[in-house]
Design a protein around this nucleic acid. Structure first.
Lengths: 223, 223
DNA sequence: TAGATTGTTAATCGATTAACAATC
DNA sequence: TAGATTGTTAATCGATTAACAATC
């Protein structure tokens, strides 16, 4: 295993590997080569072997990789066996949807509490998680260890809530607001889920394809 | 302007530029240099100028870039002025949250219809959009031009619904299911919003930081 | 005009791909 | 054993950064 800084590109591919390996496991596939895995993921076998070799030697010459073993190793690299504790801020539509649908425990996370300002929701339990008043946030964080804050509050509240979180020692934020939280000075880890960025990328690719077709049609018409 | 294929990295940065320019506009900033923009986005001025130069000459020597003009140009490159039409599949938690909260029109999209299997929801109107029966999907697509399908159905339905969409001419899918839709053969454009990939990346960075701290503490204790 | 900042060409850096000896 | 496939080193390719002439 080469140690040293792992590149961002490699890290971003790890969850995809994990997903694919889960799928292979479900399909009852026990063994896979970098060649076959590459085929299924649209990557070169070289890249896959390079990626894995950043973390250790998980394969076996002449055989390939044992699916469930490799699955476990990648899951462990990603930290899914560390029992991280999360809290959710803002039980609006998206927050509620996450509580109902997103299986935190599947990825090794424990969602310990949610916080809301709306009194109609405070005190209720959603998917087994108690919704507390946002006023309790500070004292809760002082009394309980929390690794990650899931930020799903309205745009306007994003910055003040982030400040509150940081003031009480939160160092990682999973950000669902469309607000850029990362300040040059801050050491807080922020992972953004910007829906609009994603849709706009797709919009670009659709436009590119449309333009190519229009250009092609124009060429054809000219002849 | 250099024409030719634009790299993926550049395309993924465009929505971030757009977001930042919107923010600058709101703050009343009318002019910005690549240096200042780089500071605010954590990019080098060189990279910003290189990125823009893929599409044209948007700045002015000695002055920089006019914020709202540049904003408009990037928005146009991304296709937000093309009036793309979208339909949403699956009005569960996430689908509902998108309809309620995600402002399609802000990004130039028109959400024309939604489709559901649950009879309790069919026929209702959410944020001005009629929820139709999934049975009508095929005929709707045959009769109406749709550019993008927003896939928010349960895991099990992802593949069959995708097949139905493709059979009726849909060529772009904004995918909120955690299912890998992209088949090697297919020419359908798929943009994935994999929540778990995002959380797992964050989980990795948190773990990396924890490990570094533990190593540091161990070194300190030894001395 | 002088200063500032662009657009672009050249240099550097890093990531991907290819090749191959090691070995199961 | 022979064939297959790994882990890793070397070669290639592409993306980022630096430099600078052009010019507002």
């Amino acid at each position: 295993m080469k140690s040293g800084k792992i590149s961002n590109n490699v890290i971003r591919r790890l969850p995809r590997y994990l997903r694919k390996l889960d799928e292979l496991n479900e399909r009852g596939v026990t063994r896979i080569s970098s060649f076959e895995l590459g085929q299924q993921l649209g990557l070169t076998p070289s890249q896959i072997r390079q990626d894995f070799s950043c973390f250790g030697e998980f394969g076996q010459q002449g055989y390939g990789y044992h699916v469930s073993t490799l699955r476990g190793q990648i899951a462990s690299i990603l930290g899914t066996d560390r029992g991280y504790r999360a809290v959710l801020l803002g039980v609006g539509n998206i927050g509620h949807a996450l509580m109902d649908n997103f299986c935190f425990s599947e990825w090794g996370f424990h969602l310990a509490a949610a916080f809301e300002v709306n009194p109609a929701i405070i005190g209720s339990t959603i998917s087994g998680v108690l919704v507390r008043s946002m006023d309790e946030l500070g004292s809760y964080l002082d009394e309980n260890h929390v690794d990650v804050a899931v930020l799903a509050v309205p745009k306007e509240a994003a910055i003040p809530v982030t400040k509150e979180l940081e003031a009480h020692g939160i160092e990682a934020i999973w950000n669902f607001t469309n607000v850029e939280l990362t300040e040059p000075g801050s050491s807080t880890l922020v992972e953004n889920v910007h829906f609009s960025d994603s849709l706009l990328s797709l919009s670009y690719f659709v436009s590119e394809r449309n333009d190519e077709r229009a250009a092609h049609a124009a060429r054809a018409a000219r002849q």
